[in-house]
Computed example of a mutant assay.
Amino acid sequence: MNIWNRLSQQAEQPYTIAEIAANHNGDMALAERMVEKAKEAGCDCVKFQSWTKTSLMVKSDYDPELERTLDQYSMTEEKLRTMKSLCDRIGIDFACTPFSRSEIDLLVRIGVPFLKLSSTEVTNLPLLQHAASTGLPLIMSTGMGTEEEIREAVQAVEETGNTRIVLLHCVSVYPPKDEYVNLNNIDSLRERFGYPTGFSDHTLGTAIPLAAVAKGACVIEKHFTLDQSLPGWDHKVSATPEQMKEIVDGARRIKAALGNYERQLSAEEQDNRRIFRRSIVAARDIPAGKVIEADDLDAKRPGTGLSPSLIKQIIGKKTSRTIGCDELLTETDFA
Rank of each mutant, 00 (worst) to 15 (best):
N2I: 10
I3T: 15
I3R: 12
N5R: 04
R6L: 07
L7H: 14
Q9S: 14
Q9Y: 14
E12W: 04
A18P: 13
E19W: 05
N23P: 14
H24N: 06
N25S: 11
G26Q: 15
R33A: 08
R33H: 07
E36G: 15
K37D: 03
A41S: 04
G42E: 06
C43F: 10
C45G: 09
F48R: 11
S50H: 06
S60R: 09
S60L: 05
D63H: 00
E67M: 05
D71Y: 12
Q72S: 12
S74G: 06
L80V: 04
L80C: 05
R81G: 01
R89N: 12
A95H: 08
S100T: 04
S102T: 15
E103Q: 15
D105K: 11
L106Q: 14
L107P: 09
V108D: 13
R109L: 08
G111F: 12
T120L: 01
Q129H: 14
P137F: 04
M140I: 13
G143N: 08
E148A: 10
A153G: 09
E158G: 15
T160W: 15
N162E: 03
L167F: 11
H169D: 15
H169A: 15
C170F: 13
V171M: 06
P176R: 13
D178H: 07
E179K: 14
E179I: 13
N182C: 15
N184L: 05
N185K: 02
S188L: 13
R190Q: 09
E191S: 07
R192K: 11
F193G: 10
F193K: 11
F193I: 12
Y195G: 07
G198C: 14
F199E: 00
T206S: 13
I208V: 11
I208F: 08
L210R: 02
V219D: 01
V219Y: 01
E221G: 03
K222G: 10
D227S: 09
Q228D: 10
T240Q: 07
Q243N: 09
M244Y: 06
E246H: 08
I247N: 02
I254V: 12
G259P: 06
G259A: 10
Y261D: 14
E262S: 10
Q264P: 05
L265H: 01
S266F: 03
R274H: 11
R277H: 14
S279W: 02
K290H: 13
I292G: 00
D295K: 00
D298H: 00
R301D: 03
R301V: 03
P302I: 05
G303H: 00
K312P: 07
I315R: 07
G316W: 12
C325K: 12
E327H: 06
L329M: 09
L329E: 06
L329C: 05
L329A: 04
T330V: 01
A335K: 14
